[in-house]
Nucleic acid binder design. Structure first.
Lengths: 224, 224
DNA sequence: ATATTCTGTTACAACAAGGTTACAAACAGC
DNA sequence: GCTGTTTGTAACCTTGTTGTAACAGAATAT
């Protein structure tokens, strides 16, 4: 469950945000004044995935809090404030915030903004991760993991494994693999496939047994 | 120089954005209708680092364009539109945009939002010190250390190493490096990359082995 | 202006990946 | 069980990719 922090002195706003986000499965922890917020930052801010920050606060203002935050963390920060003047907004962005929302605002929009920012901060707008059992594969960084340890795969083997992962539990014939991995214009022997499957199994180590042979029909990848 | 794409039918808005961003050192390319935008996406959207997207456009609307974009790219997307109803905003976020700005807006704020989003998209909020294994790099003082001792690097090699450090463990193709380090308008042989990698490895001494070759795919930097 | 460094090209050697083949092992049908 | 077919495996050769150094032109410093 995601956990976000809100620094806001208005009890009512805290409550409606906590309820709205809570219903969507996101835990919201609130802090009502600047000095508590600073203590939180000194402590374990790593617990949180995002910070909602008011500017006008008792004891220490939001800008100062943002500065402290950015000194130790890249955590996503969204200002939520009644101060909508150009110079305030620009100050916020100068301090390294990610978004700046002027009150009053729509809860649904705030939630969507948080989602979008969290997606972006985690670097996964499209899901690049494929996995099946002990095998996983990141198609963006082109990394493959077997039993948690990284395995270097040559291009063809990577492509075959990727196709198998995209079609978990399907029986894939050699012909299909030749078409999808080699291309429609490839006319060599289909024994190439066997060879690459062999190398793939070897490279995957103990997870290699997840690639099953279906005699006369092809191969399939299973969770084991 | 950063390059961003704006899809917007209003010539005046295009012009003021192009001028404002141009003065700040960001190139803005404009497309005035939906079908041109779709062609751009099918072509080389990789050239751009961010897309500003209007919704009401001739031929194809912005939502459709956003959908096509997200099918092939994680590029940051900001909607800029007169449609400020809740359902429109939520539709935008549902399609995977990063921000949604309702017209009229302040140019300075738009620029700050772009900056913030680009920072976030590149994962570089605190980007003064980069390191990986025995290699570290201070982008402020432009100094590089390998095994703790300082190494002087020529500009190109520094830029390559910086890009690799910013994408630790990613497999970076020669094409990507040419685009990101040399610029999208470079059309020489990609063997330049090999040569600079060779010099970089040599300059880094024993830490040079942290730069791995992935035959047929490019290079990657790893912790060893 | 001159020297020095940096950059990009080229040529060639070294190497890894891909594909074929041959043979052993496993399998299916009888 | 036996037999023919399919698959696993390893060796081998070809091909394309990469490492490397030498070189020339461009950029920069002196």
């Amino acid at each position: 469950m995601k956990k976000i922090l809100i620094v806001e002195d208005d009890a009512e706003i805290c409550e409606i945000i906590k309820e709205y986000f809570g219903n969507k499965g996101t835990e919201v922890v609130d802090v009502r004044n600047g000095s508590d917020a600073l203590n939180m930052i000194r402590g374990n801010i790593e617990e949180y995935e995002l910070v909602l920050l008011d500017i006008m606060l008792p004891e220490t203002d939001g800008f100062t809090i943002c500065r402290h935050l950015r000194n130790k963390s890249n955590i996503p920060i969204i200002f939520i404030t009644a101060r909508g003047r150009e110079e305030d907004i620009l100050s916020g962005y100068d301090l390294g915030c990610d978004d700046y929302i002027v009150k009053p605002f729509l809860l649904s929009v705030l939630y969507s903004k948080c989602e979008a920012l969290l997606r972006r901060a985690e670097g996964l707008i499209n899901d690049n991760k494929l996995s099946c059992g002990n095998i996983s594969l990141d198609t963006r960084t082109l990394r493959c993991f077997s039993d948690g340890i990284e395995v270097e795969l040559p291009p063809k083997e990577f492509a075959i494994l990727r196709y198998l992962l995209e079609h978990e539990n399907w029986v894939i014939s050699r012909d299909t693999l030749l078409n999808k991995v080699w291309g429609y214009d490839y006319f060599g022997s289909d024994r190439v496939v066997d060879n690459h499957i062999k190398k793939l199994r070897k490279a995957l180590g103990s997870a290699g047994i997840q690639i099953k042979t279906l005699v006369g029909r092809g191969y399939k990848l299973a969770k084991e």
